[in-house]
Design a protein around this nucleic acid. Structure first.
Lengths: 138, 138
DNA sequence: CCGTATCCCAGTGGATACTG
DNA sequence: CAGTATCCACTGGGATACGG
């Protein structure tokens, strides 16, 4: 009987959710897809930050990409953008209420990632070494 | 002191994790990146499935892509592949122990997605209608 | 049944230079 | 400071056909 209280949540989903393309899980995935979005949300989760502050925290991203991802997050209502019309300009980004609901997901991902690294440390190091010295495979 | 039990988990991470590129959160994101991986893990989370059973559950994916994503998941030790050398061939995919640890993330994503849809139902419908009838914008 | 092989396209994201 | 504008390489992923 499915009146069982300990029934696996959303279990029905496993059979049906693909039928309509507004599957909540897939939607959530799409909202987070983009190489930098999770990091942006992560950094904003406990602090309002300016454009340059975000840029400094993400050394390997270009201005263009940061702008693009920020605009996309704003469009999805996950962050807001406050412009102060001063000279020089000042723009602050803040996470929204709905955006904050993503943070627990990020924390779980972090936990999982840490546990995964723990388990496969050696293999991960080997992979990394391999792609840094491809000539070894010659 | 970090002996504080109620301290926000991983809070320190927000400042430092980008410095080395093995940030656990980013790693977790990469393991799940790929249009179908979350769905595959979702379907396998409570059942061992054959290739064709997966294919039937995901009507909009090609064999090639399904194969590719399955191989990638296998390589990352999130699923295993059992081959029965019968005629016709039979291949079963099963989630691993480490793979099972991803399921809570998927469940959170599903919850979030549902809540997001609840909040922005009208806008989501409008967007969908817009991309189905682009001529409206003429 | 469970794949590979080939071709091809659109979108992501990097580098660099310029602007209000 | 906080962006645009251009150009361009790479790859994710779709369509289709073939193979063990």
């Amino acid at each position: 009987m499915e009146t069982n209280t300990k029934k696996h949540e959303n279990c029905f989903m496993r059979e049906t959710c693909l039928k309509d393309d507004l599957c909540p899980m897939v939607l959530a995935y799409k909202l987070l897809s983009g190489k930098r979005k999770i990091m942006i949300l992560w950094f904003l989760s406990n602090k309002v930050l300016r454009f340059n502050e975000l840029l400094k925290r993400m050394p390997d991203v270009t201005q263009k990409m940061l702008t693009k991802q920020l605009r996309s997050l704003e469009e999805d209502h996950l962050i807001t953008r406050h412009i102060y019309p001063t000279v020089p300009p000042k723009v602050e980004y803040e996470i929204t209420e709905i955006g904050k609901q993503i943070v627990p997901i990020l924390e779980l991902m972090h936990q999982f990632g840490a546990s995964y690294i723990e388990t496969f440390r050696d293999e991960l190091n080997a992979r990394k070494a391999a792609e840094e010295n491809p000539e070894i495979c010659s």
